[in-house]
Protein backbone atom coordinates (compact mmCIF):
# COMPACT_ATOMS: atom_id res chain seq x y z
CA UNK A 1 0.00 0.00 0.00
CA UNK A 2 2.69 2.64 0.80
CA UNK A 3 4.29 1.97 -2.62
CA UNK A 4 0.93 2.43 -4.33
CA UNK A 5 0.36 5.72 -2.47
CA UNK A 6 3.73 6.95 -3.71
CA UNK A 7 2.90 5.87 -7.28
CA UNK A 8 -0.34 7.84 -7.24
CA UNK A 9 1.35 10.79 -5.53
CA UNK A 10 4.02 10.99 -8.22
CA UNK A 11 1.34 10.75 -10.91
CA UNK A 12 -0.49 13.73 -9.37
CA UNK A 13 2.78 15.70 -9.12
CA UNK A 14 3.47 15.10 -12.79
CA UNK A 15 -0.08 15.88 -13.97
CA UNK A 16 -0.53 19.01 -11.87
CA UNK A 17 2.89 20.49 -12.58
CA UNK A 18 3.77 20.46 -8.87
CA UNK A 19 7.31 20.47 -7.49
CA UNK A 20 6.57 17.78 -4.90
CA UNK A 21 3.86 16.16 -2.82
CA UNK A 22 3.79 14.50 0.58
CA UNK A 23 1.32 11.66 1.29
CA UNK A 24 -0.74 12.66 4.34
CA UNK A 25 -3.21 9.77 4.21
CA UNK A 26 -3.95 6.84 1.93
CA UNK A 27 -6.61 4.18 2.43
CA UNK A 28 -8.84 1.82 0.53
CA UNK A 29 -12.44 3.00 0.54
CA UNK A 30 -15.38 0.65 1.04
CA UNK A 31 -17.61 -0.51 -1.79
CA UNK A 32 -16.90 -1.48 -5.35
CA UNK A 33 -16.47 -5.11 -6.38
CA UNK A 34 -15.68 -3.99 -9.91
CA UNK A 35 -13.11 -1.39 -9.00
CA UNK A 36 -10.92 -0.32 -6.10
CA UNK A 37 -11.37 3.16 -4.69
CA UNK A 38 -8.59 4.80 -2.68
CA UNK A 39 -8.69 7.98 -0.64
CA UNK A 40 -5.49 9.99 -1.13
CA UNK A 41 -4.62 13.13 0.85
CA UNK A 42 -1.59 15.06 -0.37
CA UNK A 43 0.26 18.18 0.74
CA UNK A 44 1.25 19.56 -2.65
CA UNK A 45 3.89 22.19 -3.33
CA UNK A 46 3.59 24.20 -6.52
CA UNK A 47 1.55 23.66 -9.66
CA UNK A 48 -2.17 24.01 -10.23
CA UNK A 49 -3.23 22.07 -7.08
CA UNK A 50 -0.90 23.58 -4.49
CA UNK A 51 -1.87 23.01 -0.84
CA UNK A 52 -3.63 20.22 1.05
CA UNK A 53 -5.74 18.24 -1.43
CA UNK A 54 -8.12 15.32 -1.06
CA UNK A 55 -8.46 12.95 -4.00
CA UNK A 56 -10.10 9.66 -4.84
CA UNK A 57 -8.24 7.25 -7.12
CA UNK A 58 -10.51 4.81 -8.91
CA UNK A 59 -8.73 1.81 -10.31
CA UNK A 60 -9.80 -1.40 -12.10
CA UNK A 61 -10.11 -4.36 -9.72
CA UNK A 62 -8.78 -7.71 -10.90
CA UNK A 63 -12.35 -9.08 -11.33
CA UNK A 64 -14.50 -6.75 -13.38
CA UNK A 65 -17.82 -7.63 -14.99
CA UNK A 66 -18.45 -7.49 -18.70
CA UNK A 67 -21.42 -5.12 -18.64
CA UNK A 68 -19.66 -2.28 -16.87
CA UNK A 69 -17.64 0.52 -18.45
CA UNK A 70 -13.85 0.49 -18.41
CA UNK A 71 -12.14 3.16 -16.31
CA UNK A 72 -11.32 5.35 -19.37
CA UNK A 73 -14.95 5.12 -20.54
CA UNK A 74 -16.23 5.92 -17.06
CA UNK A 75 -13.86 8.91 -16.90
CA UNK A 76 -15.33 10.29 -20.13
CA UNK A 77 -18.90 9.81 -18.86
CA UNK A 78 -17.93 11.61 -15.66
CA UNK A 79 -16.47 14.46 -17.70
CA UNK A 80 -19.69 14.73 -19.73
CA UNK A 81 -21.81 14.77 -16.54
CA UNK A 82 -19.50 17.34 -14.91
CA UNK A 83 -19.60 19.61 -17.96
CA UNK A 84 -23.42 19.36 -18.06
CA UNK A 85 -23.52 20.63 -14.45
CA UNK A 86 -24.36 17.44 -12.59
CA UNK A 87 -23.06 17.29 -9.01
CA UNK A 88 -20.20 14.84 -9.42
CA UNK A 89 -16.59 14.65 -8.22
CA UNK A 90 -14.48 16.70 -10.64
CA UNK A 91 -12.65 14.29 -12.94
CA UNK A 92 -9.00 15.34 -13.01
CA UNK A 93 -6.61 12.94 -14.72
CA UNK A 94 -6.88 9.58 -16.44
CA UNK A 95 -3.95 7.16 -16.58
CA UNK A 96 -4.04 4.66 -19.43
CA UNK A 97 -0.41 3.62 -19.01
CA UNK A 98 -0.39 0.19 -17.31
CA UNK A 99 3.26 0.67 -16.39
CA UNK A 100 2.32 3.27 -13.78
CA UNK A 101 0.31 1.15 -11.28
CA UNK A 102 -0.38 -2.06 -13.19
CA UNK A 103 -4.05 -1.08 -13.71
CA UNK A 104 -5.99 1.66 -15.48
CA UNK A 105 -7.05 4.40 -13.08
CA UNK A 106 -8.21 7.97 -12.81
CA UNK A 107 -8.07 10.67 -10.17
CA UNK A 108 -10.98 12.86 -9.11
CA UNK A 109 -11.76 15.27 -6.30
CA UNK A 110 -13.03 13.76 -3.06
CA UNK A 111 -16.57 14.70 -2.00
CA UNK A 112 -17.45 15.10 1.66
CA UNK A 113 -20.19 13.21 3.47
CA UNK A 114 -21.49 9.67 3.36
CA UNK A 115 -23.17 7.45 0.77
CA UNK A 116 -24.53 5.05 3.42
CA UNK A 117 -28.13 4.26 2.44
CA UNK A 118 -29.18 3.14 5.91
CA UNK A 119 -27.78 6.26 7.53
CA UNK A 120 -29.81 8.45 5.18
CA UNK A 121 -33.00 6.40 5.17
CA UNK A 122 -33.07 6.12 8.98
CA UNK A 123 -32.03 9.70 9.67
CA UNK A 124 -34.42 11.96 11.52
CA UNK A 125 -35.39 14.28 8.66
CA UNK A 126 -38.53 16.40 8.52
CA UNK A 127 -41.01 15.99 5.66
CA UNK A 128 -39.79 19.31 4.27
CA UNK A 129 -36.16 18.23 4.34
CA UNK A 130 -37.07 14.98 2.59
CA UNK A 131 -38.96 16.93 -0.04
CA UNK A 132 -35.96 19.20 -0.68
CA UNK A 133 -33.58 16.24 -1.00
CA UNK A 134 -35.65 14.24 -3.48
CA UNK A 135 -36.51 17.32 -5.54
CA UNK A 136 -32.80 18.06 -5.79
CA UNK A 137 -32.10 14.48 -6.87
CA UNK A 138 -34.81 14.77 -9.53
CA UNK A 139 -33.26 18.02 -10.73
CA UNK A 140 -29.83 16.35 -10.97
CA UNK A 141 -31.27 13.70 -13.26
CA UNK A 142 -32.93 16.39 -15.40
CA UNK A 143 -29.51 18.02 -15.81
CA UNK A 144 -27.88 14.71 -16.71
CA UNK A 145 -30.60 13.96 -19.25
CA UNK A 146 -29.72 17.11 -21.21
CA UNK A 147 -26.69 15.13 -22.47
CA UNK A 148 -27.84 13.50 -25.69
CA UNK A 149 -26.32 11.61 -28.60
CA UNK A 150 -24.47 11.96 -30.82
CA UNK A 151 -21.38 12.90 -28.76
CA UNK A 152 -17.98 12.02 -30.11
CA UNK A 153 -16.44 11.63 -26.64
CA UNK A 154 -19.15 9.08 -25.72
CA UNK A 155 -19.24 7.12 -28.99
CA UNK A 156 -18.48 3.86 -27.10
CA UNK A 157 -21.94 3.90 -25.46
CA UNK A 158 -24.58 1.77 -27.15
CA UNK A 159 -27.86 3.17 -28.43
CA UNK A 160 -31.17 1.36 -27.78
CA UNK A 161 -32.29 -0.82 -30.70
CA UNK A 162 -34.65 1.20 -32.91
CA UNK A 163 -34.79 3.89 -30.25
CA UNK A 164 -36.82 1.67 -27.91
CA UNK A 165 -34.88 1.18 -24.68
CA UNK A 166 -37.62 -0.93 -23.05
CA UNK A 167 -37.72 -3.54 -25.79
CA UNK A 168 -33.91 -3.54 -25.96
CA UNK A 169 -33.77 -4.28 -22.23
CA UNK A 170 -36.38 -7.05 -22.49
CA UNK A 171 -34.36 -8.73 -25.26
CA UNK A 172 -31.15 -8.48 -23.23
CA UNK A 173 -32.67 -9.85 -20.02
CA UNK A 174 -34.40 -12.66 -21.91
CA UNK A 175 -31.02 -13.65 -23.34
CA UNK A 176 -29.39 -13.54 -19.92
CA UNK A 177 -32.21 -15.58 -18.37
CA UNK A 178 -31.83 -18.29 -20.99
CA UNK A 179 -28.16 -18.55 -20.02
CA UNK A 180 -29.18 -19.50 -16.46
CA UNK A 181 -29.64 -23.25 -16.05
CA UNK A 182 -32.50 -23.35 -13.54
CA UNK A 183 -36.07 -22.34 -14.46
CA UNK A 184 -37.57 -19.03 -13.29
CA UNK A 185 -41.23 -19.02 -14.36
CA UNK A 186 -42.00 -15.75 -12.55
CA UNK A 187 -39.23 -13.95 -14.43
CA UNK A 188 -40.38 -15.43 -17.75
CA UNK A 189 -43.91 -14.26 -16.99
CA UNK A 190 -42.73 -10.77 -15.99
CA UNK A 191 -40.61 -10.47 -19.15
CA UNK A 192 -43.71 -11.20 -21.23
CA UNK A 193 -45.59 -8.54 -19.28
CA UNK A 194 -42.79 -6.03 -19.86
CA UNK A 195 -42.79 -6.84 -23.57
CA UNK A 196 -46.58 -6.47 -23.83
CA UNK A 197 -46.86 -3.24 -21.85
CA UNK A 198 -44.08 -0.99 -23.13
CA UNK A 199 -44.85 2.72 -22.78
CA UNK A 200 -44.26 5.20 -25.59
CA UNK A 201 -40.45 5.50 -25.85
CA UNK A 202 -38.98 8.72 -24.48
CA UNK A 203 -36.02 10.57 -26.00
CA UNK A 204 -32.61 8.90 -25.91
CA UNK A 205 -30.45 10.56 -23.25
CA UNK A 206 -27.40 9.85 -21.11
CA UNK A 207 -28.64 7.70 -18.21
CA UNK A 208 -26.69 6.88 -15.09
CA UNK A 209 -28.39 3.44 -14.89
CA UNK A 210 -27.51 2.92 -11.23
CA UNK A 211 -28.93 6.13 -9.79
CA UNK A 212 -30.19 5.03 -6.37
CA UNK A 213 -29.83 5.69 -2.67
CA UNK A 214 -26.36 4.41 -1.76
CA UNK A 215 -24.77 5.82 -4.91
CA UNK A 216 -24.78 9.47 -3.94
CA UNK A 217 -23.01 11.29 -1.14
CA UNK A 218 -24.80 13.46 1.38
CA UNK A 219 -23.24 15.81 3.93
CA UNK A 220 -26.18 16.25 6.28
CA UNK A 221 -29.03 17.31 4.01
CA UNK A 222 -26.75 18.51 1.23
CA UNK A 223 -26.01 16.47 -1.86
CA UNK A 224 -22.25 16.51 -2.46
CA UNK A 225 -21.70 13.99 -5.28
CA UNK A 226 -23.37 11.40 -7.49
CA UNK A 227 -21.09 8.36 -7.73
CA UNK A 228 -20.64 5.03 -9.52
CA UNK A 229 -21.04 5.76 -13.21
CA UNK A 230 -19.86 2.40 -14.53
CA UNK A 231 -23.28 1.37 -15.90
CA UNK A 232 -24.08 4.66 -17.70
CA UNK A 233 -25.43 4.41 -21.24
CA UNK A 234 -27.84 5.97 -23.73
CA UNK A 235 -31.37 5.09 -22.67
CA UNK A 236 -34.86 6.30 -21.92
CA UNK A 237 -34.95 8.93 -19.12
CA UNK A 238 -37.69 6.96 -17.38
CA UNK A 239 -35.17 4.16 -16.76
CA UNK A 240 -33.23 6.31 -14.26
CA UNK A 241 -36.42 7.57 -12.62
CA UNK A 242 -37.83 4.03 -12.29
CA UNK A 243 -34.57 2.57 -10.95
CA UNK A 244 -34.42 5.25 -8.24
CA UNK A 245 -38.02 4.52 -7.15
CA UNK A 246 -37.78 0.73 -7.36
CA UNK A 247 -38.85 -1.28 -4.30
CA UNK A 248 -35.37 -2.84 -4.28
CA UNK A 249 -33.72 0.44 -3.33
CA UNK A 250 -35.87 1.76 -0.48
CA UNK A 251 -33.85 0.04 2.25
CA UNK A 252 -36.85 -0.97 4.31
CA UNK A 253 -38.65 2.40 4.03
CA UNK A 254 -41.13 1.00 1.54
CA UNK A 255 -43.66 3.78 2.02
CA UNK A 256 -41.19 6.39 0.76
CA UNK A 257 -41.15 5.49 -2.90
CA UNK A 258 -38.37 7.89 -3.90
CA UNK A 259 -35.31 5.93 -2.82
CA UNK A 260 -36.63 5.32 0.71
CA UNK A 261 -36.04 9.04 1.31
CA UNK A 262 -39.11 10.95 0.12
CA UNK A 263 -42.25 11.10 -1.96
CA UNK A 264 -42.21 10.04 -5.60
CA UNK A 265 -44.40 13.02 -6.48
CA UNK A 266 -41.77 15.45 -5.14
CA UNK A 267 -38.96 13.61 -6.94
CA UNK A 268 -40.81 13.79 -10.28
CA UNK A 269 -41.78 17.44 -9.69
CA UNK A 270 -38.11 18.26 -9.08
CA UNK A 271 -37.26 16.50 -12.33
CA UNK A 272 -39.89 18.32 -14.39
CA UNK A 273 -39.26 21.75 -12.89
CA UNK A 274 -35.55 21.48 -13.68
CA UNK A 275 -36.39 20.98 -17.33
CA UNK A 276 -36.66 17.20 -17.47
CA UNK A 277 -38.83 15.55 -20.08
CA UNK A 278 -42.51 15.48 -19.16
CA UNK A 279 -42.69 11.80 -18.27
CA UNK A 280 -45.97 10.07 -17.55
CA UNK A 281 -45.85 8.57 -14.04
CA UNK A 282 -47.21 5.33 -15.55
CA UNK A 283 -43.99 5.09 -17.58
CA UNK A 284 -41.99 5.49 -14.37
CA UNK A 285 -44.05 2.69 -12.77
CA UNK A 286 -43.34 0.50 -15.81
CA UNK A 287 -39.60 1.13 -15.42
CA UNK A 288 -39.84 0.27 -11.71
CA UNK A 289 -40.98 -3.18 -12.82
CA UNK A 290 -38.08 -3.26 -15.28
CA UNK A 291 -35.75 -2.35 -12.40
CA UNK A 292 -36.93 -5.37 -10.39
CA UNK A 293 -36.27 -7.54 -13.43
CA UNK A 294 -32.80 -6.11 -13.92
CA UNK A 295 -31.85 -6.63 -10.29
CA UNK A 296 -33.17 -10.21 -10.42
CA UNK A 297 -31.02 -10.92 -13.49
CA UNK A 298 -27.95 -9.35 -11.83
CA UNK A 299 -28.57 -11.43 -8.69
CA UNK A 300 -28.85 -14.62 -10.76
CA UNK A 301 -25.60 -13.79 -12.54
CA UNK A 302 -23.86 -13.15 -9.24
CA UNK A 303 -25.11 -16.48 -7.85
CA UNK A 304 -23.92 -18.15 -11.06
CA UNK A 305 -20.39 -16.86 -10.44
CA UNK A 306 -20.45 -18.67 -7.09
CA UNK A 307 -22.15 -21.87 -8.29
CA UNK A 308 -19.85 -22.23 -11.31
CA UNK A 309 -16.78 -21.93 -9.08
CA UNK A 310 -15.59 -18.82 -10.94
CA UNK A 311 -15.72 -16.88 -7.64
CA UNK A 312 -16.76 -18.85 -4.55
CA UNK A 313 -18.33 -16.37 -2.14
CA UNK A 314 -20.89 -16.52 0.65
CA UNK A 315 -22.15 -13.06 -0.29
CA UNK A 316 -22.70 -14.04 -3.94
CA UNK A 317 -24.40 -17.27 -2.84
CA UNK A 318 -26.79 -15.35 -0.58
CA UNK A 319 -27.55 -12.88 -3.38
CA UNK A 320 -28.91 -15.84 -5.36
CA UNK A 321 -31.36 -16.57 -2.55
CA UNK A 322 -32.60 -12.96 -2.77
CA UNK A 323 -34.13 -13.53 -6.21
CA UNK A 324 -37.36 -14.78 -4.62
CA UNK A 325 -37.79 -11.29 -3.12
CA UNK A 326 -37.62 -9.68 -6.55
CA UNK A 327 -40.04 -12.30 -7.89
CA UNK A 328 -42.44 -11.58 -5.03
CA UNK A 329 -42.20 -7.82 -5.74
CA UNK A 330 -42.74 -8.40 -9.47
CA UNK A 331 -45.94 -10.37 -8.83
CA UNK A 332 -47.17 -7.74 -6.37
CA UNK A 333 -46.27 -4.67 -8.38
CA UNK A 334 -47.64 -5.90 -11.71
CA UNK A 335 -50.91 -6.84 -10.01
CA UNK A 336 -51.11 -3.40 -8.37
CA UNK A 337 -50.48 -1.66 -11.69
CA UNK A 338 -53.20 -3.69 -13.35
CA UNK A 339 -55.58 -2.96 -10.50
CA UNK A 340 -54.84 0.75 -10.99
CA UNK A 341 -53.41 1.37 -7.53
Amino acid sequence: MPELAEVFSQFVVHQSGARSAKVIAFNKLSGGAIQDNFGLSLEIEGGMQSGLQEFVVRQDAPSGIAESLSRPEEFRVLEAAFEAGVTVPKPLWLCEDLDVSGQLFYVMTRASGSASPRQLVKSDLTAEQRCIIVRRLGAELATLHTVRPPMRSLDFLTLPDQGDAALSRVATYRRHLQEIAEPHPVLEWALNWLEDNTPEPGPTVLCHCDFRTGNYMMAGEKLTAILDWEFATWSDPAEDLGWFCSRSWRFGANEREAGGVGEKRDFLDGYREAGGTDIDSAAVSYWEVMALMRWAIIALQQARRHISGEQRSLELALTGRMVAQMEFDLLTQIQELEDGQ
Partner: peptide, 8 residues
Protein backbone atom coordinates in the same frame (compact mmCIF):
# COMPACT_ATOMS: atom_id res chain seq x y z
CA UNK B 1 -38.90 -26.31 -16.12
CA UNK B 2 -42.04 -27.10 -18.08
CA UNK B 3 -43.89 -24.13 -16.60
CA UNK B 4 -41.06 -21.69 -17.43
CA UNK B 5 -40.79 -23.00 -20.97
CA UNK B 6 -44.55 -22.82 -21.55
CA UNK B 7 -44.61 -19.20 -20.38
CA UNK B 8 -41.56 -18.26 -22.47
Amino acid sequence: VSLAEAIR
